[in-house]
Design a protein around this nucleic acid. Sequence first.
DNA 1: CTGAAAGCGCTTACAG
DNA 2: CTGAAAGCGCTTACAG
Lengths: 332, 332
Amino acid sequence: MEERNLTIADIAEELGVSKTTVSRAMSGKGRIGEQTRKRVQEYIEAHHYSPNVVAKGLAQSKTFNLGLVLPGDYQIEELPFFQKCMMGISRTASEAGYDVLISMVTPERITQLERAVTNRKVDGVILTRTLTDDAPMRYLQENGVPFVAIGSTENRQAVQIDNDHKSACRELTEMLLNRGIRKIALIGGSESYVVTRNRLQGFLEAFAVREDWDGEKQIFLNVGDGCRVEEIVEKLLTDRVECAVCMDDFLCGCVLNALQQRRIAVPEQVQAASFYDSCILANRIPAVTSIRFDVEELGRKACELLLRMLDGDEVERHTLLGYEVRMRESTK
Amino acid sequence: MEERNLTIADIAEELGVSKTTVSRAMSGKGRIGEQTRKRVQEYIEAHHYSPNVVAKGLAQSKTFNLGLVLPGDYQIEELPFFQKCMMGISRTASEAGYDVLISMVTPERITQLERAVTNRKVDGVILTRTLTDDAPMRYLQENGVPFVAIGSTENRQAVQIDNDHKSACRELTEMLLNRGIRKIALIGGSESYVVTRNRLQGFLEAFAVREDWDGEKQIFLNVGDGCRVEEIVEKLLTDRVECAVCMDDFLCGCVLNALQQRRIAVPEQVQAASFYDSCILANRIPAVTSIRFDVEELGRKACELLLRMLDGDEVERHTLLGYEVRMRESTK
DNA sequence: CTGAAAGCGCTTACAG
DNA sequence: CTGAAAGCGCTTACAG
C-alpha cells in the first residue's frame, strides 16, 4: 500500500519543469510565474505530495526539531504541570512546522540531552525545570545551543519565562491576612528550586507592608515526604495555626489528609490554600483555595520565544506570566 | 565558540583517505584495514567528531526517530503511568541511537501524529493508550507505519504489549475472597478502555471457580468524576460492602477521601484495594493494598519490540507482562 | 521568470 | 583493502 514516496524530482519530471521551480512554487521564495506556481500546487494537492522535511532540513542545516528536557526524577505534583506544558509546546511547535523531541535527564545524568545535541537532532531546546545549579542549562550554554528555560533561574544570561510566583504568593497571603488570619504557615518543597524561594519571598513581602502586623508566621521548607507532613501538621495544631499555605497540590493533599485523619474540620478549625489548582486536588471536598496558572499558555509562550530566537530575533530575557487567585471553601 | 562542525570530508582530507574509508571505519561495514580503522578512530576520538545523524538518515532512508503518541486529554491517574513509560522508552531508544518524538492526540484530533508521519519524521510509532476504536492505530495501519501498542486492544493485527490486568485482578480478588470477604465491589473507569473490561473479566473469573460462593458483588463502571464516587460510597455503606477494589489510584484516593469524610475507618469498617501502586497514593495512611506493575519495564519492552520490527524481525503479536499483588494495611 | 549545477553530510554499490 | 562516483531529497546562489 505504501509505494515509494513522491519526490520533488518526480513532480518536476511529470510537469516538465525543473526541480528548482517546484521547490520555489512550494516555498514561495524566489521569483516564479503565477501560472507555473498554480500548476505545481495543483499537482501537489492532487497527489498529496508532502516534502521530506529531513532532506529539507539537511539542505538548510536545520532539523525542525525542538528538544524538550524533562526531568526523569519527577514528583507527582509536577506531572500535571509537565503534561500541560508539553501540550502547549507541542501544539505551538506543530503549528510552526516543528516537532518535539524529548530528552529525559536527572541531576546526575544528562546524556540523553547530550546525544540530541551532539547528534544535531535539534535546533533549540526548552527546559522545563530549573535548579539553582542547572546542569542542562550549563551544557547548553557551553555549546551555544539556543534555549529557553521555563521556570525561574538566577542565571541572568538565559532566556527564561515563568508565572509570577512571587506576586501570586504575596497576593494570596495578603488576601488571607485581610480576612483576619493571625497565625499562618507556609509549607513548601525543596529550596534548591528557585520557585520555592520566589514564593517564600512573596509570602514575606505580604507582611513587610503591614506595620501593624502582630500575628505569627511559620515556615516549613524542604518538605520531602509524608512523614514530615505529619510532624508539621502536629505542630500546626499545637500552635493553633489558622491557615496553611501549601506550595503545591500534592503537598496540600497530604496536609488535608493528615487533618482529616485527625478529625480536624477544614476550614472551620484549620484553613488551607494551595498552588497550581491542578487535577490533583480536583473534586476535593471542601474545594481548595488555590492559585491558578495557565500552564498550557506558559508552554505556548515558551515555544514561541524559542521559535523567534531560531528566526534570529532578539527576545526579552525575562518574561513573567500572570496568575489568578481562586478563593474557595477551604479558606473563609 | 561553535565553529563549523567537523564532517566526514574534513576527516578524510586530514587523514589522506577517502570519505568511503572514514565511513567504513565508523560503521564497521565493508572490509577495511585494521591500521586504517585505528587511525580514523583515533582521529575521531581526539577531535570529538560525531556524525550528523540526519545526513546519515537521509542516506539510509531512516530518521532514527521513534514517534510516541500521548493523549492530550489525559487524566491524573494516568500521568505517573505515562511518565514512567516515557522513561523506559526514552532510555531504550537512546541506547539504540534513536530519539523520541512526541505527538499529542485527542480522540478527535490526530493531526500531530499525521504530521510526524507524512513529514517522514519517524521510523515507527509507540501508542500509549488504546481505545476500543482507536484513531491513531487505524491511521498507522492504513499508512503502513510500523507501530506497537502499549495496552490491550481488540485489534488482532496490531503488535501489542501490556501487563496482565485480567490475571492481576483475578488474583487480587481471589486473595480477598480467601480472606473471607463476602461483599465486594469493583469500581472502575470508562468501559471504552479495553483494560477496564479486562479487569472486570478477571474480577468475575475469581467468582466463577468458587461453586460455594454465596456472597454479593457489586460493579460500578464508567465512574468519571468525584460526584459519582460520593454516590457509590453511599451505596457501599448502605449495603455494608466490606471491600472496594478500585481500578486506579486516583479513584481509590477519591473513595478513601469520601470514607474519611464520613469517618469510616479503613480497613476496620471498609477495606480498599487499588491498581498501579503509583505515587498518587504514596504516603497514604493506611498504606493501600495494590497491584504493582513495572511500567518502566513495559516502556522498555515496547521500545525493544518496535526496534526489532524496524530491523525487519518478526515479533510476537501479543506480549503480556507480569504484576505483583502488594497486600498492605488497607485490607486485612 | 526559469534552470543547470553544486551543495547539505552521509552511505553504498561498483570497480579496482 | 581502498576509492571515485552516484545517490538520499531537498535548497540556493549563479547565470540566462
